[in-house]
Amino acid sequence: MSFLTPPTTSAFGERLTLHYDPGLKRNRFNQIANAIAAFFAALAVVPLFLVLIYVLIQGGRLISLQLLTQLPPAPGLTGGGIGNAILGTIIVTLIAAMIAIPVGVGGGVYLSEYARNGWFSRFVRFGNDVLAGVPSIICGVFVYSLIVATRIFFDQSYSAMAGGIALSVLMLPTVIKTTYEGLLLVPQEMRMGAYGVGASRFVTITRIALPAAFTPIATGVVLGIARAAGETAPLIFTALFSPFWPDGVFHPIATMSVLIFNFAIMPYEAQNELAWAASFVLVIMILGANLLARWISHATRS
């Protein structure tokens, strides 16, 4: 009743109007900062467009049935295709997935369903993060020393199998982490419900928890496969390369990524062109897988 006036005897500057004043220092600063952030965002998006445009134009114009189904030409010759590399990428990636998915899902199940927060699970989680950070070329060196140099598979050195194993080492941390985090999201009540009707641990995990976490796990696995399909470094001295059609999994095999690497640095135009064409196929496959992963996580949301 008596104190009707606001505190005017303050050390704050005068604040008379409520109107927006673009000339104020803070508002000018805001405008500049907005512009800088917008510029940076544009910078971040530009490379994607440039790369995509070139891959689509340079590679896309070469695509034909012949290109997708024939063998690459000998150096100096023209024509030919990348059929063996496409098939090889699929084979090597499949081998990697067939190793990494069961191992990774199993490991993730252990971490989220069985492990108490003891030293072992802490070590595995830590080791998983470290493994995820190991440079992919080191995975190649590892598998080379372990499998290629020792000729462990039927006295064969370079092989599709070795390449697949190298890629699986790369995929493993992704699958484990994805499974672990996906399972953590499954509400405890759901497991309780299953235990409550007398289900065993095994049944609860495989029939309740894993299906409930299917979406995040599938999303992560698809992304992991997509990343592995584009990897080159672990393959250059494990799967090596081959100008011929795949000859079983215990022989060297062509892959698109290694083909791009080999053919990009060759001084022949025909080979350079095949590198662009392989880039096109690879990028389409990988972006397709990424969009698929996104679709999986969207489609099941509703």
Binding site: L48, V51, G230, T232, S257, I260, F261, W276, N290
Partner: peptide, 13 residues
């Protein structure tokens, strides 16, 4: 999506 482009393709580019 930029992160998904294989590094060997970026190298070619």
């Amino acid at each position: 999506l930029l992160a998904a482009i294989p590094s060997v393709v970026l190298g070619l580019w």
